[in-house]
């Protein structure tokens, strides 16, 4: 290879690298605002979902066991008694990376709401943890236009409501969740696993169990101060 060739190749690679970096930074600038807006909306919607009826008062981030832990304090007035509830970020490694969720609990550690914020699980398997249960058929949608059966909340996430977060959350393998299972599962403080994705289910239940312990530590820390 002649020195002139090396110079030519270097210049061409640099120019192409520069153009692509420039156009990507331009792209980043256009999409930055919508993405930030999406994430903010997602967070607010998630908080409203996991703390139904409560008003969020404060967001706090503390260091527990050498890692940051974010939680929110919310209150609700009922019969002139102020009730408190908390929401916290729970995270645990699933099959394809961390599964991050927000969990809302009241004073008796009962889960008020639960929603998954981000996950990278396998599409069709673990990613079904965010799937919205739809029993709608083509006939319902296009002919009878019966849209009442449509549910907005994912079945996997809905089944956590009412469980006790401070106790062990058991995993039963009963196939897809439906309403008739609810009483039996709550009695055992259990959820039904996503078929073919027990690792994802386990990551979620463990992240809640670990999260509630961190929340209790954070709250005692808060009282000491």
């Amino acid at each position: 290879m002649k020195p002139a060739d090396i110079v030519k190749a270097t210049i061409i690679i640099s120019v192409i690298g520069f153009i692509s970096a420039f156009s990507l930074s331009f792209m980043k600038k256009i999409t930055q605002e919508p993405i930030a807006k999406q994430e903010q909306e997602k967070k607010l919607a998630a908080l409203a979902l996991v703390l139904p009826g409560y008003t969020v008062q404060q967001e706090k981030t503390v260091t527990i066991d050498d890692s940051p832990f974010t939680y929110w304090i919310a209150t609700k007035e009922e019969n002139r008694i102020v009730k408190k509830a908390w929401a916290f970020l729970a995270e645990k490694k699933g099959y394809g990376g961390p599964v991050q969720s927000i969990v809302g609990v009241d004073e008796s550690n009962t889960i008020l709401g639960f929603t998954i914020l981000s996950q990278n699980e396998t599409p069709g398997l673990g990613a079904r943890c965010v799937e919205v249960a739809s029993n709608e058929t083509f006939v319902d949608h296009f002919i009878t236009k019966n849209l009442t059966s449509k549910e907005e909340v994912s079945w996997f996430q809905e089944q956590f409501i009412g469980l006790n977060a401070s106790k062990h959350i058991a995993i039963h393998k009963k196939g897809d969740w439906h309403k008739e299972m609810k009483d039996e599962l709550i009695q055992h403080n259990a959820v039904t696993a996503i078929t073919g994705a027990t690792i994802t289910t386990k990551a979620v239940t463990q992240s809640i169990e670990e999260g509630i312990q961190k929340l209790h530590k954070a709250l005692t820390l808060q009282e000491v101060q």
Partner: peptide, 21 residues
């Protein structure tokens, strides 16, 4: 990266469903 950013900004549900792919 252009596709990824565009989907993330304007089709977040699709981005969520396809994830790492």
């Amino acid at each position: 990266i252009i596709v990824e950013l565009t989907l993330k900004a304007f089709q977040p549900d699709v981005y969520k469903a396809l994830g790492i792919f």
